[in-house]
Design a protein around this nucleic acid. Structure first.
Lengths: 356, 356
DNA sequence: GCTGGCACTCTGTGTTCCCGAGTGCCAAGT
DNA sequence: ACTTGGCACTCGGGAACACAGAGTGCCAGC
């Protein structure tokens, strides 16, 4: 059990905490959170003193509990029932009372070997999401690396019929986007080859964000008879960059929802999981720091997920954040373990992506 | 209400049915199924006579019910409760008592416009699965077109670093598979280009099933210094064909499970949905006919899905069956509507794939 | 400021009871 | 030979009720 860390008066909230809540009350709060997470039952003063040697009697704990309730950190479902942490209580617990629990050596080895076997980006993402779901026993979500921070590795134009080509865009992160393009004119293979050469000469290594500017004068660099085709191709390319931007997500572990006694709101949660847009917002903005984001219950912007928390982290290759991954579970989750797992997986994935 | 169709003595089962079960008993069974599906409560003799004008009294219906129960078509949850159809009862209902309900004109228009907007194969599949989930209010599953029945449209080799290339395989169904290949030797771009040319010359239009035979002598057709690289590339190509074979599935509408009062087994169902292998088996073999497959409850091979039925159909481009799609829901589902929706969607998707 | 004691308040559980829907069977009717 | 009304019987589920147990708040004493 980690020592109780309580640097008093460090931030705006610190003052309230330091003046009204002494160390023992915080220890009580922590004990409540830990017990409630493991038993899923409101925890009473007597049980607390039995399971944690706080060195005081139940009566004292009761006084502390009353104070904590007054401050909104805990609540009781009914009069004369035990206490349950509120979202605010979990927040305090996560911010100041808990220490992230690192994975066991065995778990780390398992992650390493499991992820190392991936053959391509799709595979990395699929394995990652399954891994995360299994480690945390919760619902895992992994976002595909964003196009916006990648660079063009290659653009391929494959003639399909005489008026149709398939464009394949390959990025440095290994992501592949393809689109079928209907051309305005009939174009033979050698002209296609020329356009492909022009495209690649211009865009190879170009950051995707820069593509729109870079291609502006491209139509002028091809023979006049190919100009309208080139315009068509470019417009599809730009569309691809915009439309698919950040959109793809992979989910695993939905079955874990049923295990958690999610009597209420299961339907809403499943619905949210199918709404990519909602999920992406929940994963949060891609911040520059590699910090873990924790959204607890009502802190998250989506109605219907009142009872769920999200633990998310960014990942990427090198120092660039490419996308986010995380897990979603009941507010009543084991935050130290979950945060540890998410952090570890994010790091390993970053490592894999950087290496390849 | 469709006329009662009962061609007596048509098949092996027909004899039992025709001798022991007369038309009225079948009408009773149908009424029971219909009522139970819509109310989700065991249906009694009195309620039946009130809601369906069978022209007989409750007592008569009771006699018929006793006979139907004897034959295993219905059962009662407890003594002195109404009757509930058994899996065998649903089977008879589906096979001989129900008429597929076609979609409304509005629904058909909606399908058409919704699917027509798809830009590529991924998009077709995604839209299809959502559509199906929405139409049936159940869990929809769509399998990606199988590689085995497709032909090679193009193979692309993209140099990434001096010892690494990405292979992109494009099939005539628009499916794209990519793999990064680590080469044994350093190979410059022109030699890569040559290998690409050789590959495409040999494989363009080749059925994927024929690829293994076709490429057997390919290494001999390239300069001796490229031979080992070609072998590496071919082995990865063959791997891709085998590994990804039929594997990919897309699911939507899992939230509908929560709506159905799936008090029992929800966990199992969600687990099955994450097990691609199980799901593929459930969708069934790709048969040549365009018939709809219905698996009712215990008919399906997977424990834990006792309470669910699967309605599946094949789809494809032209007359070739490429893959399957279907929905999964409680055995207590509206089969006529569900079958109608699955059939319609399968047809439209086939149409889209054929046209493109 | 902590502690033990005490009265009080609930929830959850087990019990009992009863209503009503539904059945099976039988004898009478067509 | 089937159908029908009648009747006794069964059983699940809801209402009413009691009660044990866990938990609380408060107070007086240390």
């Amino acid at each position: 059990m980690p020592a109780l860390s309580f640097p008093s008066g460090t931030d705006a909230d610190g003052r309230e905490v330091s003046t009204l809540v002494d160390d023992r009350k915080l220890a009580v709060l922590r004990a409540i959170v830990e017990d409630y997470v493991s038993t899923n039952e409101p925890v009473g003063s007597k049980a607390l003193t039995e399971r944690h040697n706080l060195g005081v009697s139940p009566a004292t704990v009761r006084n502390d509990m009353a104070a904590l309730e007054e401050l909104g950190y805990i609540t009781q479902p009914h009069t004369s029932a035990g206490r349950v942490p509120t979202d605010k209580g979990y927040r305090l617990f996560v911010d100041r009372l808990s220490q992230v629990k690192p994975l066991s050596a065995a778990e780390r080895r398992a992650i390493e070997t499991f992820l190392a076997g991936a053959v391509d980006l799709d595979d990395v993402v699929t394995r990652t999401v399954r891994l995360l779901a299994q480690l945390t026993r919760q619902v895992a979500v992994v976002q595909y690396p964003a196009l916006s921070h990648s660079t063009v590795r290659h653009i391929e134009l494959v003639p399909l019929t005489e008026r149709r080509v398939m464009m394949v865009l390959i990025t440095n992160t290994g992501r592949v986007e393809q689109r079928v393009i209907e051309l305005p004119d009939v174009i033979d293979d050698s002209r296609i080859a020329h356009m492909r050469a022009v495209l690649n000469a211009c865009l190879d290594g170009c950051g995707l964000a820069q593509v729109p500017d870079t291609v502006a004068d491209l139509p002028d660099r091809v023979p006049v008879e190919d100009r309208s085709s080139m315009v068509t191709i470019l417009s599809v390319l730009l569309e691809t960059l915009v439309e698919r931007h950040d959109e793809r997500l992979v989910i695993a572990g939905a079955a874990n929802l049923a295990a958690a006694d999610f009597t209420i709101g299961l339907r809403e949660v499943l619905e949210a999981l199918e709404e990519q847009v909602v999920l992406i917002r929940l994963l949060g903005e891609t911040t520059d720091t590699s910090a873990i984001t924790v959204r607890i219950g009502s802190e998250n912007p989506y109605t219907g997920l009142r009872g769920t928390s999200i633990v998310a982290a960014g990942y990427g290759s090198g120092d660039k954040q490419l996308a986010r991954l995380g897990v979603l579970g009941p507010t009543r989750m084991d935050y130290p373990v979950t945060i540890g797992a998410v952090r570890a997986v994010a790091r390993y994935v970053s490592q894999i992506l950087t290496a390849s």
